[in-house]
């Protein structure tokens, strides 16, 4: 069984939950930016949560199915259509051989996740089917999908129950303005206390340069650096450090002007200082932010970060129960 790509949308790629374990060689985690939505789509069609599906940003693809199967679309609000008829999202949908899955315009959020019973069956590369386009690794031939591609589909588990859907309370909300919680640290001592305070008080906006590598923000006041003689090997700009690892979710501020939150396809390291890291519980949310979304960064402690993590885990447990 295969799915034929009639139109790929803007940028649609094969993703699963990611490729951990190779960061020390510069290979990023990759995988769905909104992993909760990816898991939900897979559970709806009876797949393992880690099966591969499609992630589409801003514009949905148009896909023709060769055989009868079950699909589900989660994530951003983007009306789902089968042969032109609107269908519910966050729901297991039967689709027949020859029918076409397509989408209307995005109304909220940024990325949809499409799961098909059996999962997209591209070869596993370093433990994952996720696409890492810079390294031409994984996914469909190491790249985003294109018109005319035929995406192989694996054998369905048989646990797909058409019509099953995710309860409203367990679907993603798209709150605006957005609050992203940051645990300060890493190199935050490089900037003055007052300017760091201001960073957490001001409103920022998602910049157009927002993709799977990172999300850039604009609109706040540039940070002020504590003076120092730059250490050997760090480079001359006060925002430079000796090249180090960049944690997933870390917030770097090149030149002190525009913060960038590194996401799933980010470079693994480099020479810009970081003021802290977005907590794990809020990383999925970033994948659903559109350019210009007003955003506030709030400061949390490790205890609060772990509490938020537990709350996310509990929500995922509820989802698993609901779709059992």
């Amino acid at each position: 069984m295969a799915i034929k790509v009639l139109n790929p949308g803007l940028l649609t790629s094969v993703q699963d939950l990611g490729r951990p374990g190779y960061f020390h060689l510069g290979i990023p985690v990759s995988g769905a930016m909104d992993r909760y939505a990816m898991r939900a789509a897979n559970l709806l069609v009876g797949n393992d949560e880690g099966a591969a599906g499609l992630e589409a940003v801003f514009v949905g693809p148009e896909l023709a199915f060769e055989e009868d199967t079950v699909v589900a679309v989660t994530g951003a609000d983007m009306p789902v259509k089968i042969d032109g008829e609107i269908q519910p999202s966050w729901t297991a949908l039967p689709i027949k051989a020859g029918q076409v899955l397509s989408f209307d315009f995005l109304t909220a959020g940024a990325r949809i996740y499409i799961a098909v019973a059996g999962g997209i069956d591209v070869p596993v590369a370093l433990g994952s089917r996720s696409t890492y386009p810079i390294g031409a690794l994984g996914g469909f031939k190491g790249r985003a999908i294109a018109k005319g591609d035929e995406l192989p589909v694996g054998r369905p588990s048989g646990n797909a129950a058409s019509g099953r859907s995710v309860p409203d309370a367990l679907r993603r909300e798209n709150p605006v303005p957005v609050e992203l919680r940051i645990l300060p640290g890493l190199y935050d001592h490089r900037v003055t206390k007052a300017s760091l305070e201001r960073f957490f008080e001001e409103e920022w906006k998602v910049a157009p340069e927002a993709d799977r590598m990172g999300y850039r923000f604009r609109g706040g006041t540039p940070l002020e650096f504590n003076e120092r003689e730059q250490p050997f090997g760090a480079g001359s700009d006060p925002s430079n450090i000796v090249d180090s690892c960049y944690p997933y979710g870390s917030v770097q501020v090149p030149g002190g002007t525009e913060p960038i939150i590194l996401h799933r396809d980010a470079v693994s390291g480099g020479g810009y200082f970081m003021i802290g890291t977005v907590i794990s519980a809020d990383m999925d949310l970033i994948g659903q932010l559109q350019p210009n979304t007003p955003t506030r960064f709030s400061r949390v402690t490790m205890e609060e970060a772990l509490e938020a993590r537990r709350a996310r885990a509990a929500m995922l447990d509820h989802l698993r129960m609901a779709l059992k």
Binding site: P247, G276, I279, S280, A305
Partner: peptide, 11 residues
Amino acid sequence: TFGGDEHLFVE
């Protein structure tokens, strides 16, 4: 220093 709730960073 900690990089969020999933990384320990040592300079």
